[in-house]
Amino acid sequence: MRGRTGSRIVAAAAGGLVILGLGIAAVDRLLNPSRVGPVSAAALAMPEDTRVLLGVDVGKLRDSPLLDSLSGFLEEWLKGDHGRLLSELGIDPLESVDEVVVGLRPVPGGTGLLAVARGRFDLQALGKLADGAAAAGLERRDTQGAALHLVTRAGAEPAAALAFLDGADAVIGAPEDVAALIGNRARGLEPLRSSPGLVAMLQAIEPGAQLWAVDGDGAALEQLRPYTRRLPFPALPEIDGLAAWGATAPVLALDVIARARDPEGARSLADTLGGVLTLARLQSGIFPELAEVASTASVAVDGRDVRLGIRIRKQVLDALLARLERAGGDQ
């Protein structure tokens, strides 16, 4: 096959392999056209003033060793209004749900919480269960844009609402927030797309994350500022946004991107983080687990973005948790 034709066949085969690989990636991308980063179209209909988004890929987490750590939190949540609503409908979040996106927004007197779940929901069976549970204070609403819209009542006031938009998307939260999301979706609105900071940080999250969190304007980091002022480091620069995500296999991998106001701010933040990590690496004698975590950590700057990456092996994580537990016991 040697010769000009042979060379061309090899070059064409190489080109074909590249095109095939990129084609597979393009098809994979086309299958999720309406997503912004890890957020599905249904979650993009959350109210525009949503400041922070948190996400869990429940499907990937099912097989994760972290599930044991989260089960306590889940049990606590299931005891609340939203949890009771799910248990009355016989929904097990870990079995029926594949991914959850939680939006946090400031409301008078606290923080409003709205969760959108993707999974597999049997609407007929749920409808029958809902009718049966009506006596227990569950109100069924006929709302355009939702296949099944339920509201629980605490006395005369609506307490929590759950709506199944279709067989794959469900939303749970305060009744007015759920109604707003259903309305947005029915009108084809995706208000979250109009928040450039949030969208930019969502797009920074690498695909495949099992857990993630995004702060579209750095407000969450601002709340840490009183604590960071006590550290013997220069004041942290202003942050425009923050994205953090993690995966639990094969190691606990955590990545954080902080978007500074300008490249100088990014370099300043990176220098501070680099200094903290260097100090942590020097603690191998008295705190070997911290030193190992710091030795795997890295800081990189890309324009305004500072990226911190940390990898923690299971043995190191167990040792760290055990040490924290001992420290808690001593107090």
Binding site: L22, A26, L30, L31, K60
Partner: peptide, 16 residues
Amino acid sequence: VLLIAPEGAGALGGSL
């Protein structure tokens, strides 16, 4: 493809 695709649906597409 070998290292990223196993992360799940959308992982490879997001990495295009």
